[in-house]
Design a protein around this nucleic acid. Structure first.
Lengths: 220, 220
DNA sequence: ATATATAATGACAAAGTGTCATATGACGGA
DNA sequence: TCCGTCATATGACACTTTGTCATTATATAT
């Protein structure tokens, strides 16, 4: 593993806004053209009209820019889930059921759709961590008084769920995000129509909610 | 998308066995050293002591060799799941519960463990398709009389499950494979001890089996 | 005006990729 | 034995990419 830097350098942020924007636009174009592994820094610097050396003054490498670019996109996504959970009165599954179609719209109808397509079809461990909202990560620092940004677990009514610990919560969140990624990956790969995609997600969601086993009598 | 070839050329199979083996050994070494994207054909041909031109006579590119190498490893895995399902008398979940520890052993204790580690940490859409046993894929060719290799659905007692169609079966299989990949990915990433990994998988499995919602009274 | 920090540049070395014209060698027929 | 043919082997080549670095330019403050 290489040393990972998560952010651009200060130098980048000191840049005039329009130069920053040029770079991000270039990133958008290149990462929409091909998946991360095939993207070329050469193309990006040509598009952004900056010199090779400058690029490396702002970012450690391709990945660094990639994840930063993604971060600029995902800002609203956090709030969206939060709202859906509130709206569902803490019902985790209902919340997700409302969340998914919104998410899908954002991903497929955005002008970045092509970027997202590559992303979801090449979703690996690192990427899935980046994509997962912070608020979903395990909270280990409850004692710290600066809980400035709240945790999704706070919006969920745990009484409805067979969940014992924060650990479990985290694990369950991850499972649900996995469902989401998997379904969207499928959607892109097979170019399914929107309603089928949603139906497919809901089916998985309900399996998880109610169980796949038949209970006593088959109410099917 | 580029034209994908799944197999080595005939030329490769015409080669003397020991030369084939040299190449596969080289693949094993290189793909254990680094993930696919960082692997270098240069290294492989040096290790295998073949010329650059020869390599391209056998394989279309890195990926081609990679997936072929993987195919040589995965042969027994199919039978393993089949046996587990039989042993569980068609109980899908019990079958998987038995299957997982065996799978885990195979992946972590094999001499290819390092290869698998890279694979699971970089599992993308394509890879997950390759890894998933054939017998799990959707069967569309029931009418064809040559059902020479059987389908996992045949070993599963569907009466126990809320499953309506083959489509559903396929979808459920995929979910379960996803659990498996996700859990193993976690295991490698966080270097969890074996029993924790198994516990984590089982927890997810039982969530899916029985549902995450509490039923009527909390038997917790 | 001068010193100092900050940013920009492109040439460069190193490494990798896929291709191609050519070389090798095995085999069968004349 | 000589020749033609076929499958295979080879490595030089042209090309792309990457990350670095010595140098130059620009801005800011004294």
């Amino acid at each position: 593993m290489k040393g990972e830097r998560k952010m651009p350098t200060q130098t980048f942020f000191n840049l005039p806004i329009d130069k920053q924007k040029r770079l991000l636009d270039a990133a958008s174009t290149e990462f929409s053209r091909v998946p991360l592994t095939e993207a070329s820094i050469n193309n990006i610097i040509k598009l952004a009209e900056i010199s090779r050396g400058s690029f490396y003054q702002y970012f450690k490498d391709k990945e660094d820019l990639y994840y930063y670019f993604f971060a600029t996109l995902k800002q609203d996504s956090k709030k969206m889930l939060e709202d859906c959970l509130k709206e569902a009165n803490g019902d985790l599954f209902l919340g997700y059921q409302n969340y998914f179609p919104k998410m899908l719209t954002m991903i497929t109808e955005d002008k970045q759709a092509s970027f997202f397509k590559h992303m979801f079809l090449h979703m690996d461990y690192r990427t899935s961590r980046e994509v997962t909202p912070e608020a979903m990560k395990k909270r280990e620092c409850e004692h710290k008084k600066d809980r400035h940004h709240n945790h999704f677990a706070d919006f969920v009514n745990a009484d409805l769920l067979k969940i014992d610990s924060d650990e479990d919560f985290h694990s369950l969140f991850k499972v649900m995000m996995t469902f989401l990624f998997q379904t969207i990956g499928d959607a892109f790969a097979k170019e399914l129509p929107r309603d089928e995609v949603i139906a497919s997600f809901n089916k998985k969601l309900f399996w998880l909610r109610d169980g796949v086993y038949v209970k006593s009598e088959g109410e099917k």
